[in-house]
Amino acid sequence: MPLLLCMAEPSLLTAVRQGLERLGQAAAAKIWRLGFAARFFVAILLNSGTALRRFRLIIREIYFAGVQSLVIILVSGLFVGMVLGLQGYDTLQRYGSSEALGVLVALSLVRELGPVIAGLLFASRAGSAITAEIGLMKATEQIAAMEMMAVDPIARVVAPRFWAGVISMPLLAALFSAMGIFGGYLVGVQLIGVDEGSFWSQMQSSVDVREDILNGVIKSLVFGVAVSWIAVFEGYDAPPTAEGVSGATTRTVVTSSLAILALDFVLTALMFTGGNGK
């Protein structure tokens, strides 16, 4: 009977077979890429000795990844905080508890918005630049030239950029949160006229250094690792053509944004619902 079926519908069977083959190929390629990314990560860690010893390399990259992202981080933080101040006041004053505005602004920034938005901005501002730079270095055969000169491109090019991202990200997230709280203060206290004393004192009594601030810093550190890893990997893996580099840059922004949001959910679930559920 199967033989008969084969004979009867050869075109349908080959179509199904080809479809399955393509699906299998795509899945295998994805898994291969994931494994390559993981091995690349291990290679970065193993080869970061040079970069950490020659710290000047990392400092140079912190300048490009961190310092040049400062303006966008500070301005967005200020505006996010001001919007939180306006919206939070509008809701809180219906319940007659507008003094809790400081708590609302500080907790939402320190726990969630600070690390997440700073991470998204960092991915699109610095991550894309790193990918494009490494991708172009590969396309113009600078990386091959380094290998010819017995300079390890992972130690010399990739690791400094990775560590610069990991170092910059928590600082940028902290600045984003601080600026946001300042924005909330400007709108809440200076513009609307919430009592200044209760704004700060209620904030201080409900924001915990370990539970809230340290967890926010840990989050931003994790996002920094994820974004930097994705950025250097996409750049190193980019096809050495103009189209390949542009595609890799886009993938960096899309993948790291999704990674940040997914990781944020996982980290929030671990940090804020596990321990203190009593």
Binding site: V110, A178, V207, D212, I213
Partner: peptide, 9 residues
């Protein structure tokens, strides 16, 4: 600033 002014350190 976060630790001293915002938090309860």
């Amino acid at each position: 600033f976060l630790a001293l002014k915002v938090g309860n350190l």
